[in-house]
C-alpha cells in the first residue's frame, strides 16, 4: 500500500455536546495504482511460467534421453555404426560392446540385486528406528537420532564411497576372503542401506507420529505390552505410509551412482564370474563377486564412448530405463497414498 493518498484531514473535534465520531471532511482515496494492479496480475503468469518450467524439465529429460536411446535401435542422423535390436539389448545377458553385444540384463539384474539387498537391511531397521523415535525414545535420544539422520543424509556419496573403499573393503577382505577381492553386492548394499536409511526413518517417524494417540492408549488399556501395541496396532495402522517410505528409499538406492561405483568392482561379466567361482559358498560368491549396475556402468563407460556410437546410445537407453523405473516408483507411492485415505 505505497499509494495512500495523503488526503486524510480530520474535522477538529467538536464540543462535547455534539460529540460523536470525528468525521472525515474528504474521503481518502485508498486506491491501488494501475502499476500495482498490473504487477499483481502479471506476477501470476511469471510464477506460472516458473512452475511450467519445472514440468517442462521432466518432459525435456524424457525427450532427450528417448531420442538418444532410440538411436541405439533406429538408424538416425549422427549414428556412426550399426544399430542393435530391441531383443539384443533388453533380453540378453551378453555385454561385450567391443564385439557388438549390448545385452544390458546384467546391469538390470545387478541394480535390483544390490538395491533389494540394501532395502532388506534398511527397511526393517529404518521402520524400527522410526518406531523408536516416535514412541519409545526419551526426548534427548529423539533429538540425537534426528541429528544423526540429518548428518547421514547430508554425507556426499563420494565420501560414502571412499569410506567403503578405504575402511570396509580392507576389513571384509581380511576377515573372510584373504585373497579374493571383497568388492561386490555385499559391501555396496551395506553402504547403500546407510545412505537410504535416513529417508525411511524420517518418513516412518512421521507415519507413527501422525497416528492418533487413542490407538496406542486403546490397546495398552487392554493390557498390551509396549511391543504388542506397536506390532499389532501401530505398524498395521501405519502400513501404507511405511510402504511409501520403503519405496522412496528404494528409489534413492536405484538412482545412486558414485558410492556404488566405487565399491562394487564394476564387472559387467559378473554373472559369468559368479558361475565360475566354484571355490566359495554360494552366499559369499554372491556377496563378494565384483559386479555392475545400471548406474555404475553409466559412470564407468560414458566417458569412454564416442557420441553417435551404438555403445554410447545404448548407455543413454539405460539412463532412460533408469528414469522410467524411478518414475514408476513415484507413481506407486501415489497409489499407496490413495490407499491410505480410502
Amino acid at each position: 500500500m505505497d499509494d495512500l493518498l495523503p488526503a486524510t484531514t480530520l474535522d477538529a473535534p467538536g464540543p462535547p455536546a455534539q460529540a460523536g465520531p470525528a468525521r472525515l471532511r474528504t474521503a481518502p482515496l485508498f486506491r491501488h495504482s494501475r502499476l500495482n494492479r498490473l504487477a499483481d496480475r502479471g506476477t501470476r503468469f511469471v510464477l506460472l511460467a516458473c512452475t511450467l518450467l519445472v514440468v517442462g524439465l521432466i518432459g525435456g529429460i524424457l525427450y532427450f534421453l528417448a531420442i538418444r536411446g532410440a538411436a541405439a535401435f533406429i538408424p538416425m542422423a549422427g549414428n556412426t555404426d550399426k544399430v542393435a535390436t530391441f531383443r539384443q539389448v533388453f533380453l540378453s545377458t551378453n555385454w561385450d560392446p567391443g564385439d557388438g553385444h549390448f545385452g544390458i540384463l546384467p546391469f538390470v539384474a545387478g541394480t535390483f540385486a544390490v538395491t533389494g539387498l540394501a532395502l532388506l537391511i534398511a527397511a526393517p531397521t529404518g521402520v524400527l528406528a522410526g518406531v523408536f523415535i516416535a514412541k519409545v525414545a526419551p526426548p534427548w535420544m529423539r533429538t540425537l537420532m534426528r541429528q544423526v539422520m540429518d548428518l547421514l543424509v547430508g554425507i556426499p556419496s563420494v565420501v560414502y564411497g571412499i569410506f567403503g573403499l578405504t575402511v570396509i573393503l580392507p576389513l571384509v577382505g581380511h576377515a573372510w576372503l584373504a585373497d579374493a577381492p571383497a568388492a561386490g553386492f555385499g559391501v555396496s548394499a551395506a553402504i547403500l542401506a546407510v545412505m537410504i536409511v535416513p529417508t525411511i526413518v524420517s518418513l516412518a517417524t512421521d507415519a507413527f507420529e501422525s497416528l492418533p494417540a487413542s490407538l496406542d492408549e486403546g490397546s495398552q488399556a487392554l493390557g498390551s505390552t509396549r511391543w504388542q501395541s506397536i506390532w499389532r496396532v501401530l505398524i498395521p495402522a501405519a502400513r501404507p505410509r511405511l510402504l511409501t517410505a520403503c519405496v522412496l528409499g528404494l528409489g534413492r538406492a536405484i538412482g545412486e551412482a558414485m558410492a556404488v561405483q566405487m565399491v562394487i568392482g564394476n564387472n559387467p561379466q559378473w554373472i559369468l564370474l559368479m558361475r565360475q567361482a566354484t571355490d566359495q559358498t554360494p552366499v559369499l560368491r554372491f556377496l563378494f563377486t565384483p559386479a555392475a549396475t545400471l548406474t555404475t556402468e553409466l559412470v564407468q563407460e560414458l566417458p569412454n564412448t564416442a557420441a553417435g556410437s551404438t555403445w554410447n546410445n545404448v548407455l543413454f537407453a539405460m539412463g532412460l530405463l533408469l528414469y522410467l523405473i524411478t518414475m514408476l516408483l513415484i507413481l506407486a507411492t501415489r497409489r499407496l497414498g490413495r490407499q491410505e485415505h480410502a
Binding site: P212, S214, L215, E217, G218, S219, Q220, A221, L222, G223, S224, Q228, R232, V233, P236, A237
Partner: peptide, 28 residues
C-alpha cells in the same frame, strides 16, 4: 490394565474388523 479396563471419551476402535477389535484383547 488387563484387570482394569477402560473406555475412552472418544470411541477409538482399531482400524480393522469388528471381530478383530473384540478378539484383540484375548489374542494378546
Amino acid at each position: 490394565r488387563r484387570r482394569v479396563g477402560m473406555v475412552f471419551q472418544k470411541p477409538n476402535p482399531f482400524p480393522r474388523s469388528i471381530y478383530e477389535n473384540v478378539a484383540f484383547g484375548p489374542r494378546l
